[in-house]
């Protein structure tokens, strides 16, 4: 079975932050950057470029863990795994912004902002939703589409893992391809 996911190769990231902009655009009301910047509630990115080891840029987003600590900590059951396969998605209508999910996420992947989708609700948990609606339409996630260096790729996880294992084995055995 092919399970595609956003794969991050931090060593290829140059810190241009285009992924953040396109992510916010894709999650805006209009879905168009020129209009998104003047919406009443600004859409926020679900991917962030942090300062990583050796001060290099590090793209950071939700890993959709299984089991997911955020989902276990969520008291109103707002973090759901039944919306799209393999993804943990925040049901904003149920989110009460209590902060429990952020308290247990080891990856700093959840932040809290007001969202246009639940106007008047106060801050809610905002995190990567895998662009499941775009993917269902046959597109790739917005951050991947924006990335020109290949630091973000939408790939079959198993193929990626196999390639990683091969690289590791070759390195360990001193094999050069």
């Amino acid at each position: 079975m092919v399970v595609k996911s956003v794969i991050i190769r931090p060593e290829l990231c140059v810190g241009c932050m285009q992924c953040m902009i396109r992510c916010a655009e894709a999650h805006s009301e209009s879905g168009v950057l020129a209009l998104a910047v003047s919406e009443a509630v600004l859409a926020k990115p679900r991917i962030h470029i942090g300062v990583g080891p050796e001060l290099r840029p590090f793209p950071n987003k939700c890993r959709h863990c299984e089991p997911a600590p955020c989902q276990e900590a969520c008291m109103p059951g707002a973090i759901r795994s039944d919306i799209a396969e393999g993804l943990k998605i925040v049901d904003m209508a149920r989110c009460i912004g209590c902060g429990m999910c952020g308290m247990v996420c080891p990856y700093f992947a959840i932040r809290y902002y007001p969202a246009a989708q639940v106007a008047g609700h106060g801050a809610v948990a905002i995190k990567c939703d895998g662009c499941h609606e775009r993917v269902a339409r046959g597109q790739v996630p917005a951050c991947v589409e924006a990335c020109v260096t290949g630091a973000l790729a939408f790939e079959d996880v198993n193929r990626h893992m196999n390639a990683g294992v091969n690289r590791l084995a070759n390195a360990a055995l001193g094999v050069t391809a």
Partner: peptide, 13 residues
């Protein structure tokens, strides 16, 4: 991380 904890990549990185 300690200098700029609000913008650093996660420790788990």
């Amino acid at each position: 991380w300690r200098r700029a904890p609000l913008s650093a990549a996660p420790l788990a990185a």
